[in-house]
């Protein structure tokens, strides 16, 4: 199948998985909270189509899309979200705290960045040729440990790519109330080059990611991939202050629609046909799995 098809299918898998996830909250099969990736799919699909198989990934609270694009198992993710013993981390972590192979996530804003910096140091010290990628958002720009990490990563020429997904809102707070000055200027101050794109086109993301990753892998030090994007859903579940007009406007920038124009309609249908059973199977199997217990402690 074509490369374009595969990018589309990755984005569609994320979209359908997240839609199903939100739907399962109303059936009572999911409790707690979650942060969906709907609207931002082009970022993960584009980046992971060019990241190295052994690169180290540190993701954040909004990690499902990153994990699925990384190649993670939708069933193990669904099981984790539903609090089952078969989940990625046995039900201990839930939506924001997952780990599989070289993929890690944590729900603390900013705190993950120095950790990813240390991971990059290991890849450099061991001369593996791998890099570390850490995903942050516009909201993370308020956290001090981000800047400590940028300073250290630049001083020590570490192979770290900071992926900044600016979806314009830190939970309910718009960037203009949370981010002073320039986003790119923050990185420039540390001598860290920025690839900046305002796009919902997965091919544009992929091209920028290719260049930024190449730069980091070359040993030239950290880089930033700054992607201005839109999330279509609430931050988590019931916290969306945006007007219907704004939501309608941003829905024009749907990465699935942008990329679908490049595919024959038969492939669009095929993608739906292939993704639907994967998502159904993930949630149905997870629903039949046992809950974990504390008996081992």
């Amino acid at each position: 199948m074509s490369d374009y098809f595969s990018l589309y299918k990755t984005m569609l898998l994320i979209r359908r998985f997240e839609e199903r996830l939100l739907a399962e909250f109303s059936t009572g099969k999911l409790v707690g909270t979650t942060h969906t990736y709907i609207g931002q799919e082009a970022d993960a699909a584009g980046i992971f189509s060019v990241a190295g198989a052994d690169d180290v990934i540190f993701s954040n609270h909004r990690c499902h899309g990153h994990f699925l694009a990384y190649g993670g198992d939708p069933y193990r993710l669904a099981a984790e979200l539903m609090g089952r013993a078969t989940g990625l981390v046995g039900g201990r972590g839930g939506s924001q705290h997952i780990q599989w192979r070289n993929f890690y996530s944590n729900g603390i804003q900013g705190g993950i960045v120095p950790v990813a910096t240390g991971m990059a140091l290991v890849e450099k010290a061991q001369k593996t040729g791998n890099i570390a990628l850490v995903f942050i958002g516009d909201g993370t720009l308020g956290e001090g440990s981000l800047y400590e990490s940028l300073n250290i990563a630049a001083l020590w020429t570490l192979p770290l790519l900071i992926v900044l997904e600016d979806n314009h809102y830190a939970q309910t707070t718009p960037s203009e109330k949370g981010v002073a000055g320039s986003m790119t200027g923050r990185f420039a101050a540390f001598g860290i080059p920025v690839w900046e794109r305002e796009t919902a086109d997965v091919l544009e993301v992929r091209l920028a990611a290719t260049e930024a990753i190449q730069r980091v892998r070359s040993g030239a030090g950290p880089a930033c991939l700054l992607l201005h994007t839109y999330r279509f859903s609430a931050h988590s579940k019931g916290d969306d202050p945006r007007s219907p007009e704004e939501l309608t406007r941003i829905r024009q920038f749907d990465p699935l629609n942008v990329h679908a124009k490049r595919l024959p309609s038969a492939e669009i249908e095929q993608a739906e046909t292939e993704v639907a059973p994967v998502v159904n199977d993930a949630f149905a199997r997870a629903d039949a799995d046992p809950f974990p217990s504390l008996r081992d402690y």
């Binding site: 120095p114 290991v122 400590e148």
Partner: peptide, 28 residues
């Protein structure tokens, strides 16, 4: 000299970097 790293004044950064090192097989 390769394994003694002097850092900026960044206590969160120091322990955070050490956390990442430890997770990936070193003993910081």
């Amino acid at each position: 000299p390769e394994r003694v790293l002097t850092t900026p004044i960044s206590e969160a950064g120091i322990v955070g970097v050490a956390n990442g090192m430890a997770l990936r097989g070193l003993r910081p």
